[in-house]
Structures are given as structure tokens and as C-alpha cells.
Design a protein around this nucleic acid. Structure first.
Lengths: 328, 328
DNA sequence: GGCCACTGATTAATCGTTTCACCAAAGAGG
DNA sequence: CCTCTTTGGTGAAACGATTAATCAGTGGCC
């Protein structure tokens, strides 16, 4: 391994001068600087990040704590953060908290121990972890008081809701996966807002809710709005099992525009997060925090409606009494 | 930040002794060692990884280069590697090569620059990157001469093939996504082996192959074997569009047992990789390499058949002439 | 000529930890 | 009593980079 000393000796100058020439900080004559850079290049010199970190107190590495890498959305966040970090010359150390809150705090400690400059965290459902004295940004949703940036889950829900209302549906079922999730709560709330007061809304959760779907459809529901694409896919299977066709008998929507949303049949109407914008903003704030800035307001990145084949106008039947009842 | 010096001063011993007591390396009386540890604990002391890395030349951090984090399989590998690394007290720095071979080598360089002790790489389709003088393990498939460990894609294909043959199918279509992929090539080969010489096999690739599926079914094919679950899902949609039922008219299989495989309707017959075993082995080899061991043979971890509802016996029709023709 | 400002480079300290060589004290053995 | 070994601990030199302080020249200007 070529060190700064090596170069200094080769050229016949002091180590300090080499450092100055390479970082462009001190005062070095142009001609000498070029000779030094050439020699560094020739030797394949790479500054020792350990030495630099020791001296400057900055490692140039950020930590990333993810709740569960197997959820297809998180890797996308990870990927975009990694892109945004690379653009700033930073590295990303990942830690997977694997579903447990205990591992989450432990992962945070690990990262601190490894000397990261700051942390991006996507919290476990319903938790708000804290790292003492470490710059940290949180990607969650508006409901979380510590949230730094996230997709506008409420707005996204509203888009879906308005889309479904616009198609003429008057009786819908909201399908959630886990009540504990702040994100899903916000999506639910947004969907309810988007549907407005004139639509009859029922809410079901989890596997029990999934199993109850055919019954609700039997009772007049014409659309099912799930809080995630995976849930929508499961719903689609459940409906197919019950001989209910999508979108013929009932419309169906998801959330997140996961890779399989287009491969499904029918292709799934959903909303997409601008993960890249979220990652970019998260890193902007985090680098600011590291530089000593104050914590900014929580920021929401708008979601985008992706209408596909799984939603259409409700089937023409005898009008449901529940619907008319609720009209003003 | 509490340093080793701090502790030394507090207790009234030299820094060397503190280091010895904490790492258990030198000779320190039991009683003193305990006092030192207690003080360290009280101060919340965390050794500076930078200083340690500088002195020892080992960072305790491994690099991980992934071809594309959006493919749902890779995050699972990442997660399992991260678990295996954590168990060894190592950290994982990720780098996403985002589909391009240029970025792949660049990512490798970046990791080297950050002082990683070794690298795990899942190569871009059809590439075999090299990092000069850096311990490195490759997770790909048997076809890659540099492969260190991987799922037994050939064996997995054979499982699927035998399963389908066992159900009585005599005319199948093999559906691949990308000819360049070593992994898919091996899966194809395995499936052909498992099906044996008595079965009529046709092979199609990519979107064109996908579009041609209904035609092949019309010509008597009773099973479609895809090289990935995502491809199988796309095939299912394509078939549904053509009014072909699975598994009624044609059986369908995937590969990898991705999360949505159970949520599909019908649930997908597929094969699962033992990602955890792969990750464990990869890290075992890599730590060995770092310690100076020689590069071991390429190792294949068996895959597991996951039979679900998407495969069944072929429909009873007039026997296809192609089939009988090929019987002995 | 004397003083000042500026340029270009050097010196030396420092970051926190590890590690090797050395040393004092104490008991063992002859 | 002298030497030897063992135990428990210290000193000091690294590791490779950064950086504040310093210094030698060199003109400029009155």
C-alpha cells in the first residue's frame, strides 16, 4: 500500500506538502502539485480512510437501519440512498433490525460503534428510536413526530380515494395489514378523505379482513382499497377463490407500485412513491445536520397515482340502499 | 467521547494496561482488569474503530456488491449476509452496481478505498469481476469459474423438471428471461435434465417468448416452466388474457419462492434457495480468505422444491401425437 | 537600507489504539 | 547470596493522515 510518506520521499518533499497538494488545501505551487498528483496516480495511491477518520473525526460513512429488508419497498429506499450517498462521496453501512425493536436499538449502537457520521432510519412499525448525540433522520410518515421526510401517504391515499370515487363507487372496503403501522394508518386516513363523506366505507384488517372480503362484496361493496400491493395481490387471490372477478365485479387498488404490480392480471391500480426524491431529501437534511444545522420540519414528497386495469366503474346493479341512505 | 487515556487516568494506570485489560491480550491481574472494565462501562466507552483500524490494518467491515437491489432476491441475500456478518462482529458496506458493469468495477474500487477487509460480490449477469489483492467471494452459479458458493440452480431445475414429469406432462415450454444470465442458463439445463429425454421440450426467451405462450399451449404444451417467479407471474397474466386457466389447462412453475408466490392464485409451485446457508458459507470462506486461507472449491447449496397449486396432472385430451412419437 | 507582505514549503503535534521491548518485584532453586 | 523465572505492569514507538505554527526567500515600497 502506497502511503503519503512514500510519495513524499519519491518526490523529495515533506508529507505535509503531499497532503496539501492532494487535498488542495494548503499552498503548493501548481507545478509541484501536478508532479505529486502524477506520482500518486502512478503508485495507485488511496488515502487510508482509517487514518483520515481518526484525525478528522469524520468517517464519511452513514448508517442505514431498515426494519426488514425482505419487504420489497425498503431495498428500493436503500438503493436510492446509496445512489444519493455515492454522489456525495459517502458510504452506506446497512443494519437490518429484522422486525424486533430490541435489534433496532442494538443496530443503532453497532453503527455508532463503527463510527458512522449519521444515521438514516426507517423505524419499526410504531416505534421512534433515538440515538443520543448522533445526527439522524427518520423516514416514516406524517404521523411520526420525529419524521424527517417520507412519501405523502395521506395525499397518496387521497389520490386513490378520489380516483375510486370518480369512477362512481359508493360502497368500498378499506383493507389494512397491520393496525400498528403509522404508515398504514395514514394511508387509510387519506383514502377516507379522498372518498369523501358520500361514500360508505368499511374497514377491515389482516388475515381475518382478507377472509371477509367475499362477504362484503356480497353485501354490495364494489371496490377494495388495500394499503399495500402485496395485500392487494392476496386479496385478488382470495376473490378469485370465491369466484369474484376483478375488475368486473369489484375494483381493487394497492399501494407502492411494487415490481409485480404490472405483472398481475389485471394489472394493479396503485400509487407510486418518488423514492429517489425521498432519499435525496433525507441525505440533504442529514448532511446538513452533520454540518451542524438545526433539524428542519417534516417534509412530505407527493405520491403519484398509477391507474391500471384493476379499477373501473362499478357494475350496474340495483342501487344499494346503503348508498342512497347516505346521500344528503 | 471517552478514550482509553481517560480510563487510564481515572484508574491511575497506563494506557497500555487498559488496552490489555479490555482486549484480554497482555498480562493484567484479574482484580485490576475488573476495575478497568467497570470504569469503561461507566463511561460508556466505545473503542474508536478508526484508530483500531489504523493500527491493526483491519477495519472489520466487509463490502457487498449487488447487481441490482430491486430484484427481490438480492435483498434477501443482503439480509442474510448482514446477519452472518453481525454474528462475527463484522459490518457490511453495501454498493449497488445498478445494472452496469462499469459501475460494478467502480463500486469495487470505492469499497477498497473505504478500507474493507474483503468483498462479497453477486456479479452482473455474465461478468466475472476481479479485485486485485482483496479477499473476495462470488455468489453466482456453477457455470461461473470464479464462483465460490451459490444455490444449486441445476439441481433445483432438476427438481422442478422431475416434479413436472412425475405429474405426467409430456410437452413443456421452458421460459427464460435473459439469455445472458449464467444462473438462468443453469436453471434451464437443470430443468431439461429433470424432465428427461422422453419429454418434448421447447425453449422461449423474454417478452417475445411470453407473448408466444398461448400459441404453444394451443399446440399441445401442458406445462410452462419459468426461470423466475416474476416471469411466472407475467406468464400467468399472459395466459389469463388468453383465457387459459392455470393449472386447469396448463401447469406453471417459477423459481426462488419470492414473497408473492403464495399470494398468487393459484399459489405458485417453485423452488426455494437456502439463502441463509449460502450467506453463512460465503462468510465462512471470506473470513478464511482474510485470515490467509486458500480459495476453496465452488460449493453448491441444494434447493428445495415447493409444490403448490399451480402444478397438476395434464388435462385429459386426445393424446398429442408429438408425445407418443417420442416414446420408445 | 529597513520594514512589510506574500509565496511556498517544512516542522511537529495530534487523533486513539495496539504492541513490542523492557523493567521492577518477588519468589524459587542452587 | 546470586541467578533465574514468573508475574504484572509501563514506555514509547508506531499506524497514516491533517493542520496550525513557523520559516526561508523574494520583491515591493517608502
Amino acid at each position: 500500500m502506497a502511503s503519503i510518506k512514500q510519495i513524499a520521499q519519491d518526490i523529495g518533499v515533506s508529507a505535509a506538502t503531499v497532503s496539501n497538494a492532494l487535498t488542495g488545501k494548503g499552498r503548493v505551487s501548481k507545478e509541484l502539485a501536478e508532479r505529486i498528483q502524477a506520482r500518486a496516480e502512478a503508485l495507485g495511491y488511496r488515502p487510508s480512510s482509517a487514518a483520515r477518520a481518526l484525525k478528522t473525526g469524520q468517517s464519511g460513512i452513514l448508517g442505514l437501519v431498515m426494519p426488514d429488508l425482505t419487504n420489497p419497498l425498503f431495498p428500493r429506499i436503500a438503493q436510492n440512498l446509496s445512489i444519493a450517498a455515492e454522489a456525495r462521496g459517502l458510504g452506506i453501512l446497512i443494519a437490518d433490525s429484522r422486525g424486533s425493536e430490541a435489534r433496532q436499538t442494538e443496530a443503532l449502537q453497532q453503527l455508532v460503534g463503527r463510527g458512522v457520521d449519521g444515521v438514516v432510519i426507517v423505524p419499526q412499525k410504531g416505534t421512534s428510536p433515538e440515538a443520543p448525540g448522533l445526527p439522524m433522520v427518520t423516514i416514516n410518515t406524517a404521523r411520526d413526530p420525529r419524521n424527517t421526510v417520507s412519501a405523502d401517504h395521506i395525499g397518496g391515499g387521497a389520490l386513490i380515494g378520489a380516483h375510486v370515487r370518480g369512477l362512481g363507487h359508493g360502497h368500498v372496503v378499506l383493507l389494512g395489514g397491520d393496525r400498528v403501522s403509522d404508515v398504514q394508518q395514514d394511508r387509510m386516513r387519506g383514502m377516507a378523505e379522498g372518498l369523501g363523506p358520500s361514500v360508505l366505507i368499511e374497514t377491515v384488517w389482516g388475515d381475518a379482513g382478507l377472509a371477509a372480503l367475499p362477504k362484503h362484496v356480497g353485501q354490495g361493496a364494489t371496490a377494495i382499497l388495500a394499503t399495500s400491493d402485496l395485500l392487494a395481490l392476496a386479496a385478488l387471490s382470495e376473490l378469485a377463490r370465491g369466484g369474484i372477478s376483478v375488475p368486473g365485479d369489484v375494483s381493487l387498488t394497492g399501494f407502492d407500485d411494487l415490481p409485480f404490480a404490472t405483472a398481475m392480471h389485471p394489472a394493479l391500480t396503485t400509487t407510486a412513491q418518488d423514492v429517489s426524491a425521498i432519499a435525496e431529501h433525507a441525505l440533504k437534511v442529514l448532511t446538513g445536520l452533520i454540518a451542524g444545522a438545526a433539524r428542519p420540519e417534516s417534509h412530505a414528497v407527493p405520491m403519484r397515482l398509477v391507474p391500471r386495469a384493476s379499477t373501473t366503474a362499478p357494475p350496474i346493479t340495483t342501487q344499494t340502499p346503503t348508498n342512497t341512505e347516505r346521500l344528503p
